[in-house]
Design a protein around this nucleic acid. Structure first.
Lengths: 211, 211, 211, 211
DNA sequence: AACTAACCGAGACGGTACGTCTCGTCTTATG
DNA sequence: CATAAGACGAGACGTACCGTCTCGGTTAGTT
């Protein structure tokens, strides 16, 4: 990428990790995942593409899964939980942002991680830790709404975060990320309001009656 | 398993498929998946265990995925959607049944299929079809409740089914199927009632009665 | 060949060998040997080409070797040992005829038999029998010359036959059948006269003339 | 064989060929050929016996034939052409030595090479080269005799070598290596003297003077 | 005329070997 | 002492043949 010497002699830089190699390996891994998915992702292939020795990879990433996770970590960047001041639009923005992020190529990588986690306990643990952390983060959206008085006091923000994430996951894993703005709205609304019939309270309605 | 004649001479029965071999292969595949998951599942291993020749497997299941799907198909059986007359307990029963089913070994197989679907389009399509069909089925629970007047008229049963299934999937895929009855209750309740604050109907109040 | 109905339905003709099938199988085997040598010669391939069932082949030719031998037998035809009245030209004619015969395609088949005989005892026995018989036949050339007084009385016709055949075999097996008439002449001459120095006819003697 | 550490941990020794593995593979190949001939000789079997990975074999010996040739090369050692001072005994010694060499197990290997050469052009070329070289070597026996004046000046040593080798080959390939000393003597004598009747030169005679 | 017996093509069966691929470990030579 | 390189043992991949088996159908002799 940033290198000028394309004769690519990238030898040791002494008794410490060579960041150029690290970059080259992560770049290669990411590219392979984007191009061919988990199927084309092998340590052998990464080493070939990165012009790195296999032991160099194994030295820093003891398992394929760890490399996978590092690749995903790198592009997790921000996804800043937008705060529009209204929970409905916050949730829609959250899902829209996530789906856009995933559609941009990183979805393939995350799918790979989930797949890997189904047969590799290390990946499973990492995925569990990662998704727990993300859940906490997402729960923040609901906690803020609760603080604003938008949510019922007894609502569990963490559980709400789990449910919305679960929806997103299933869409990703079954390749159904294409979803219209309108459908997204309706989905979020039903998640927020639930499905139960409201007790016909006199002079009220499902949404905020008036002021 | 059910065989008694473990002298296993299971030769050809003429120019057509031998159902004994088919059974033995599916049995072996299922056992391997249950025992070691997708990692231990190889055509080679299945052939060894089933005492079958590899070409016999390849003859009938052109890809590993097809065999995987056939294995799952076999044990899809019923999971009869219980009808307790109340949506809350219906949903709890649904999740309890599903989690029990998955915990009983078939979860490992379903996880394998989901994993496979992340890199194999055939598996993905099959999974999509299967989960769509199941969603329809699950939506029935909500449609019946709606007919009873338990649910709001504008509630979307199919969407509700998607949300509850998504929750279950994520729990399975992250290895978090152990869940107490109480937690299940709370989860279902929040799914059904939503999280929004109630419009403070006069003389009522879901929880914060007073203080 | 002679059939007109190329829909080639060649069913059983009752409880006995169907000569059409036998022909088709031998034809196919011979063709395969000529085209691709021993490497392309498999029961499977013969069956495919002959549109015959494998058991039909195994019924009549218990081993690949037997089929091989039958194919060779079929085209052994004659090779009539020419009798020109002079041993030198008889031998040259013998070798020329043999080399021409082998060059015409049957050489590939005979090479296959020799190869087969190196790892299959049945083929080895058959080859031994066959070559012994041929040796007897070839010895006739020398016996006739001996009767004519052309050969020394103590010469062994059978041994002479063995030597000339051995020469031919080695040429075949190392792919050196192309040989000029002149070289053939010289070869035969040296075989017949030997290599020892002549006793310088009258009044001399290389070896022990007398005492 | 000569190893003491049969715990056989024989890993890589860096980015170059491991001579231990090479030895083990050649040993295994030779043993298999001696024990079961070409039929029992498969890359799979060699790998198993040598405790080597198949790719290790394929890396260094692209074809089965190459491995075969290397095995034979290894035991070609010497066969020093004895020089007794008399062509008759030289030839007998040559054949006796060769037959003994072949009977000692290497015959099976050479037969395999000849067989292989009948369907593999690479093997054929190698065999041609090898036998040409040996022929040159053997011709030395006759050339020396010619220099001594034992042979006729017009005799062709190379052709003589070809004829004696051909005799040996045919005996090997038809499994007729058992031959008495006496028969060997007679055979060599007829090769050397030829079969033609000597011109009845006065006062001489090849053997029976006259009556 | 029905029955039996052996043939026929077809093709599935359990196996073995093929040659290629990737795995994760190892040891070198280079810097 | 980290690096690129690449050999190593192991074993799965998907394919080709092996030799055996059973099938459904055909035809000829025997009852």
């Amino acid at each position: 990428m940033t290198r000028l010497d394309d004769t690519h002699k990238r030898a040791s830089i002494g008794a410490r990790r060579n960041p150029q190699s690290e970059q080259a390996i992560l770049d290669a891994a990411e590219a392979l995942l984007r191009e061919a998915g988990l199927a084309g992702f092998s340590i052998e292939a990464v080493a070939r593409r990165a012009r790195a020795g296999k032991p160099t990879i194994y030295r820093w990433w003891p398992t394929k899964t760890r490399l996978l996770l590092d690749v995903y970590q790198r592009l997790k960047t921000s996804l800043p939980s937008t705060d529009t001041g209204a929970i409905q639009s916050d949730c829609v923005a959250f899902l829209e942002g996530l789906f856009a992020h995933w559609s941009g190529g990183s979805g393939a990588i995350f799918r790979s991680i989930v797949a890997e986690a189904q047969s590799d306990e290390a990946a499973a643990a990492a995925l569990r830790a990662y998704s727990g952390e993300r859940r906490q983060q997402t729960a923040g959206i609901f906690a803020r709404a609760q603080a604003r008085g938008e949510l019922a006091p007894e609502a569990d923000p963490l559980l709400a975060a789990e449910l919305i994430a679960a929806f997103a996951w299933q869409r990703l894993l079954t390749g159904r990320l294409e979803i219209s703005r309108d459908e997204l709205d309706r989905t979020v609304r039903q998640m927020l309001t639930g499905v139960l019939r409201r007790p016909a309270s006199p002079g009220s309605g499902s949404s905020p009656a008036e002021g």
